[in-house]
Simulated scan of single mutants.
Amino acid sequence: MEIDFLLIGHGLAGTALAYRLKQAGKKIRVIDQPEANNSSRIAAGLFNPVTGRKMVKTWKADALFPVIVPFYKELERITGSKFLTEKAIYRPFLSIEEQNEWMGHSADPDFEVYLKQIYSESQSEFLRDPFGGVMLRNSGWLNIRNLLDAMSSYFEEELILEKFDESLFSREDACWSYKDLKAKAVVYCNGLGAMNSRFFSFLPFAPVKGEILEVKQKFTPDYIVNRGVFRVHLGKGIHRVGSTYTKHDLDVGVTNAAQTEILEKLTDLVRLPVEEIISHKTGIRPATRDRKPFLGKHPTEEGVYIFNGFGAKGVSLIPYFSGIMATHLLNEKAIDSEVGIARYFNYI
Results as ranks from 00 to 15, higher is better:
G80W: 01
K216H: 14
V241P: 10
F199I: 00
N331V: 11
W59C: 14
N256P: 02
Q217S: 08
S106K: 10
Y72C: 04
I335F: 13
P34E: 00
T260F: 06
F219H: 00
V187L: 09
R77W: 09
T260S: 12
G132D: 10
E74T: 14
H233S: 05
G235V: 13
H280C: 02
K281T: 14
A107P: 05
E76K: 10
L147Y: 06
E156V: 00
A334L: 07
E302Q: 14
S316C: 02
I335N: 13
L136S: 07
F71W: 11
P66S: 03
L84H: 14
P130G: 04
Y245Q: 06
A18Q: 07
G133H: 00
L266H: 05
G228Q: 09
A107E: 13
M325E: 13
D173R: 06
L330D: 07
K60T: 06
G133F: 01
Y178W: 15
E121K: 12
K297Y: 06
E275Y: 02
L75C: 09
N190C: 01
M195R: 12
A183D: 01
K27E: 04
Q259I: 08
I278N: 12
A24G: 13
E275K: 09
R77H: 14
R198V: 08
I28W: 02
G242M: 02
F169A: 08
Y154E: 04
R171W: 08
G140K: 11
D222E: 15
T85A: 14
I318S: 13
N308R: 01
L272H: 01
